[in-house]
Design a protein around this nucleic acid. Structure first.
Length: 400
DNA sequence: TCTGGGGTCCTAGGACCC
DNA sequence: TCTGGGGTCCTAGGACCC
């Protein structure tokens, strides 16, 4: 029997959009979406005239929308052209990831000062294990402990606000799965504390899709079984779930619906892979645009090599990703004998992968990945310079 | 007018070894 | 001639998450 735990999930409210509102406070209260092409570094917005969604043309999706924009039916992941039809007057700001990463560090440092046991879950959310902070051995799960946890959450919110000017929502429950759901229940700015006994009333009425790990495919398949809410999932026959979803995922669905999750808060983990990819403004033809494709291909390899260098890793498995104009995606990879961080070596291995892929239609996306990462040991000999990869035989990979 | 970019994890088959 | 396991590595694809 495991000791009762107390786990918090902290989720920044409309993070990217809220960072932009710090910069442009005059936009507060208006529907604003973030997305589209990256802002060129030396091109700040004028401060008086902001582009409207209706004036946008091209590829891209919404990465974040303010709550005012969400009220108009747009949400993150939605294509910008579709969003423009729903909310033509909404303002569109390009993303500035450097700035978001800066605020991400500020908010995590502020939380760490209150509660050090945090697990990074990307730029705008974390889990925290509060067990040691609020529960004593003698009174594990005493009502007092949960009251103390709420106090800690209040401290975290004010620490984050002081450090960044931003608000966050916090869920506190016995595990990560429930806390992730709980933090969303009273957004923005809420604190939601749930105990096991709250599961039927607070968790079961929610759509199954709210469970972290049940995505669009699984929830659609659940729907065909007549299962729409987490409660219906909890009542479903375990054997039926295993029959439809396999032994592992089926059993997990059943556990998740009952709010059971014993995963630990992991405060440190090594990266498994590093990748760079790009979607073209217009689909490129493997023959007619091969010069441009080769240049982009080489540039992706150089960027992956730079990332390896900066983060201090070498990798052994080089991967290529290609998405065709029909959105079908293929990948190929190739494991080389010795780990590398050299752009030219990566370029050659990825070039070999390219030869194993059909090039019979236009290409929408090209990506390069490296996995099987390790810290370089006593690797002393100088790497080939990245510049060598920039002056390649440009036309060797794409066919004539 | 469809559908970004950076990740993780899982599955499954084949190679290869013991 | 056919017949065994188990373990690990490699590769390809897919679901999912932020």
């Amino acid at each position: 029997m495991l000791k009762m735990r107390c786990i918090a999930h902290v989720d920044m409210d409309a993070f990217y959009a809220s960072v932009e509102l710090l910069r442009y406070p005059q936009l507060r209260g208006q529907p604003v979406v973030i997305g589209g092409r990256r802002r060129p570094a030396q091109e700040p917005l004028s401060g008086t005239a902001f582009p409207a969604l209706r004036d946008y043309s091209g590829r891209g999706v919404i990465t974040t929308a303010t709550y005012e924009a969400r009220a108009l039916g747009v949400h993150s992941g939605m294509g910008l052209m579709k969003a423009a039809r729903l909310a033509p007057a909404a303002l569109l700001l390009p993303a500035d990831f450097d700035e978001y990463r800066r605020y991400s560090r500020l908010f995590k440092d502020a939380v760490r000062a209150v509660a050090p046991e945090i697990e990074d879950r990307g730029i705008d959310e974390i889990y925290i294990d509060l067990t040691g902070l609020v529960m004593t051995d003698v009174e594990s799960d005493a009502p007092d402990a949960w009251t103390r946890a709420r106090d800690v959450a209040v401290s975290i919110q004010s620490a984050v606000r002081n450090a960044t000017g931003l608000s966050c929502s916090i869920g506190i429950t016995p595990n990560k799965l429930l806390s992730k759901i709980a933090s969303e229940l009273e957004k923005p700015g809420g604190i939601t504390v749930l105990r096991e006994t709250d599961i039927p009333a607070r968790i079961w009425p929610l759509p199954a899709r709210k469970v972290n790990g049940i995505g669009p495919k699984a929830s659609a398949r659940l729907g065909t079984l007549g299962i729409h809410t987490i409660g219906e999932l909890a009542q479903a026959d375990r054997a039926l779930l295993v029959e439809h979803f396999g032994k592992s995922y089926g059993a997990w669905l059943h556990e998740a619906a009952h709010g059971r999750d014993e995963r630990a808060v992991v405060t440190y983990s090594e990266p498994k892979s590093i990748s760079r990819e790009t979607t073209f403004e217009d689909d490129l033809h493997p023959v007619h645009d091969r010069e441009q494709l080769s240049r982009i291909f080489t540039d992706l390899c150089v960027r992956v090599a730079d990332d390896l260098q900066r983060k201090g890793y070498v990798g052994k498995t080089i991967g290529l990703k290609l998405r065709y104009d029909n959105f079908k995606t293929v990948t190929r990879d190739r494991t080389i004998d010795a780990p590398t961080r050299d752009a030219g070596t990566i370029r050659r291995a990825a070039g070999e992968c390219l030869k194993r892929v059909p090039l019979d239609r236009r290409i929408r996306l090209l990506g390069v990945r490296i996995g099987s990462l390790s810290k370089p040991g006593a690797q002393t000999h100088a790497d080939e310079s990245s510049r060598a990869a920039r002056t390649p035989t440009l036309f060797e990979d794409f066919p004539t």
